[in-house]
Simulated assay, not measured.
Amino acid sequence: MKVFGVAGHSGMGKTTLLERLVPELRSRGLAVSLIKHSHKDIEIDRPGKDSYRLREAGCMEVLLLGDNRWALMHELRGAPEPPLDYLLDRLQACDLVLIEGFKGGDFPKLEVWRAAVGKPLLWPAWPGIVAVASDAPLPVDGVKGLDLHDTATVASFVLANARLR
């Protein structure tokens, strides 16, 4: 499996790009998975449901299986966040894993940057950023720029720069 990251400040359009990028990569015959890191306290379960109640009762993991999907919820219960390699080990085999977040991770990343948001580039401070996808000319030299709206070119760049795990 290969890995490639998408980075950027909140509100830059990372998810919007990924929503276009995943179907483009799938149309090229690839099996694609995603790992997203959030600094928020995420909740994918709902209060009152059996799985929520059993997790709250103290289960370390709850695996929920339905007609169309399954989800494994693992409670950290104060333990440190697991490293990216640990999480990658838990994914099924695929061709490409897109990674959002893990800013310190040593893997190639594409920064999504829009001047209108009013935040500075993460490049060159974040390791691994090999290009910036933007809807405007970049305010700096030294990093490759891609058109944020040219999904096919972004997909080709991702495939050319993804690294074997």
Rank of each mutant, 00 (worst) to 15 (best):
V3W: 08
G5D: 12
G5S: 09
V6F: 09
G8S: 12
G13R: 10
T16Q: 12
T16V: 13
L18R: 07
L18A: 07
L18Q: 08
E19F: 10
L21F: 12
P23T: 04
E24F: 03
G29R: 07
L30T: 03
A31C: 05
V32R: 02
I35T: 03
S38W: 00
D45V: 03
R46T: 09
G48N: 13
G48D: 12
Y52K: 12
C59R: 09
D67L: 03
R69D: 11
R69Q: 11
L72K: 01
L72N: 00
M73T: 03
E75S: 05
L76Y: 00
Y86W: 02
L87P: 04
L88S: 00
R90I: 02
L98R: 01
L98V: 00
L98K: 01
F102P: 09
K103W: 07
G104V: 02
G105R: 04
P108T: 03
E111L: 10
A116P: 04
G118Y: 02
K119I: 03
P124G: 10
I129G: 09
I129H: 13
A131T: 08
A131K: 14
S134H: 12
A136T: 15
G142Q: 10
G142I: 07
G142V: 09
D150G: 08
D150I: 05
T151R: 10
A152N: 07
V154K: 15
A155V: 05
F157P: 04
L159S: 09
A160K: 15
A162F: 08
L164P: 09
L164K: 10
R165C: 06
R165T: 12
